[in-house]
Computed example of a mutant assay.
Amino acid sequence: MTDMTVDTGPVQGESRSLWATAMLRLRRNKAAMASIFVLIVLALAGIFGPMLAPHSYSKVYPEFVKVKPSLESYPQEEQVIPAAESALRRARVDLGAIDVEDGKVRIEVSSDSRDIDPRISRYLDRSSVFSDAEITIDPADPKKGVIEASVQQLYFLMGTDANGRDLFSRILISLRISLMIGALATAVALTIGVIYGATAGFVGGRVDNVMMRFVDVMYSLPFVFFVILLVVFFGRNLVLMFLAVGAVEWLDMARITRGQTLSLRRREFVQAAEALGVSGRAIVRRHIIPNTAGTVIIYMTLLIPKVILLESFLSFLGLGVQEPLTSLGVLISEGAKNMRNAPFMLFYPAATMTILLFALNFLGDGLRDALDPKDR
Results as ranks from 00 to 15, higher is better:
residue 4 M to I: 15
residue 5 T to G: 10
residue 7 D to S: 12
residue 9 G to V: 04
residue 10 P to F: 11
residue 13 G to Y: 12
residue 17 S to M: 04
residue 20 A to R: 15
residue 35 S to F: 01
residue 36 I to F: 07
residue 37 F to P: 06
residue 37 F to L: 15
residue 39 L to P: 01
residue 42 L to E: 06
residue 53 A to G: 01
residue 54 P to S: 06
residue 57 Y to V: 01
residue 58 S to Y: 13
residue 60 V to E: 07
residue 67 V to R: 04
residue 73 S to F: 14
residue 76 Q to W: 09
residue 77 E to S: 14
residue 77 E to R: 13
residue 78 E to H: 15
residue 82 P to N: 13
residue 82 P to K: 13
residue 91 A to S: 05
residue 94 D to Q: 14
residue 95 L to G: 05
residue 95 L to T: 03
residue 98 I to C: 05
residue 107 I to Q: 08
residue 112 D to C: 10
residue 112 D to E: 14
residue 115 D to A: 15
residue 116 I to V: 11
residue 119 R to M: 12
residue 126 R to Y: 13
residue 126 R to W: 12
residue 128 S to C: 11
residue 131 S to A: 13
residue 131 S to E: 14
residue 132 D to Q: 12
residue 135 I to V: 05
residue 138 D to W: 09
residue 138 D to N: 15
residue 142 P to R: 03
residue 159 G to F: 04
residue 160 T to E: 04
residue 164 G to D: 05
residue 165 R to D: 07
residue 171 I to M: 07
residue 183 A to V: 12
residue 187 A to V: 10
residue 190 L to D: 05
residue 192 I to D: 05
residue 196 Y to D: 00
residue 198 A to T: 06
residue 200 A to F: 03
residue 205 G to H: 01
residue 215 V to N: 07
residue 216 D to E: 11
residue 219 Y to G: 07
residue 220 S to D: 08
residue 223 F to N: 09
residue 226 F to C: 02
residue 227 V to A: 08
residue 228 I to P: 06
residue 230 L to V: 10
residue 230 L to D: 09
residue 239 V to I: 14
residue 243 L to C: 10
residue 250 W to S: 01
residue 253 M to C: 08
residue 253 M to K: 10
residue 255 R to N: 04
residue 259 G to K: 01
residue 261 T to M: 10
residue 264 L to P: 04
residue 264 L to F: 03
residue 266 R to W: 11
residue 281 R to Q: 14
residue 284 V to D: 09
residue 290 P to H: 06
residue 291 N to L: 02
residue 292 T to C: 15
residue 294 G to E: 07
residue 300 M to K: 06
residue 300 M to D: 05
residue 302 L to G: 13
residue 303 L to S: 04
residue 306 K to T: 14
residue 306 K to W: 11
residue 309 L to E: 03
residue 312 S to W: 00
residue 320 G to A: 04
residue 321 V to K: 07
residue 322 Q to Y: 09
residue 328 L to I: 06
residue 328 L to C: 03
residue 332 I to D: 02
residue 341 N to C: 09
residue 341 N to H: 14
residue 341 N to Q: 14
residue 345 M to W: 08
residue 347 F to K: 03
residue 350 A to R: 04
residue 365 D to T: 02
residue 367 L to Y: 03
residue 369 D to A: 01
residue 370 A to R: 08
residue 370 A to Q: 05
residue 372 D to P: 01
residue 372 D to V: 02
